[in-house]
Design a binder for these strands. Structure first.
Lengths: 126, 126
DNA sequence: TTTTGTGCAAACTATTTGCAAACCG
DNA sequence: CGGTTTGCAAATAGTTTGCACAAAA
């Protein structure tokens, strides 16, 4: 039998580009009804450590797993929760390292917005 | 009797500049043994909404409350958890807004490092 | 007396972990 | 057989909330 890790990886590759562990579990369970939450988390962590996934942790909301490995940041709609990639036209980590005056082990950045469609909906409701 | 909110505010003003709700509770309980955790959280939230405090939420670690209101970012030692302010020599929010191409409601940034004293300690243990 | 604040305990959410059974080589 | 992976359930951590009572206005 195919390992759950491989299976989970194949599912996430064909899923929307930003997905939470719970959403992924739901997707997987369509085919494998007895897949356990713990297994999903364990394997997602493993895949992150292998460098096959990125995990975006943002305060207050569930972690989002991302299959895009090239450097980019994220903007999330505070109303509907949708996530969009943002390419910065400069090397943020160098700027931060310089400003901090010491080596960084990591940094975490998330931007918040009200996305265009939520904004439009809000307009309509006025 | 003085409201707990005023009391909590006065304690945090004289406490170390970055403090968690749990640490603050401990401090407060030296004088007021029956202060409740829920009360601390409720009043810290209220003080934040009044703009008297900033709350720095970072994935994986308890929120840190900060009495410094001028714009700055934070770097945290991944080994000992100590927090230090970092002044950026540029306006990050403008850069981010421009890169995102839309208005931001907020952004959250935290840098991680191994602080000098932890680094020194690690050297010694080699 | 109507509103507001408080202590307590329980609830909540996302994630992690211990363990025994299942699987794989 | 012996190490690894899984499902399950319980544990964890930080924070929030419901509620009955106390305080204040």
């Amino acid at each position: 039998m195919q390992s759950q890790k491989q299976y989970i990886y194949s599912v996430i590759l064909h899923a929307p580009p930003h997905i939470t562990a719970a959403q992924l579990l739901q997707l997987c369970r369509r085919e494998k009804a007895d897949l356990a939450m713990g297994t999903v988390y364990r394997n997602l962590s493993a895949l992150c450590e292998e460098g096959k996934l990125r995990c975006i942790e943002t305060p207050g909301i569930p972690a989002i797993y991302d299959t895009t490995l090239t450097p980019h940041e994220h903007i999330i709609c505070r109303r509907c929760g949708s996530v969009r990639d943002v390419q910065l036209p400069f090397a943020l980590d160098s700027l931060l390292t310089e400003a901090a005056g010491e080596e960084l082990t990591d940094y975490s950045l998330t931007m918040g917005c009200i996305c265009p469609s939520c904004r439009a909906r809000a307009e309509n409701e006025k």
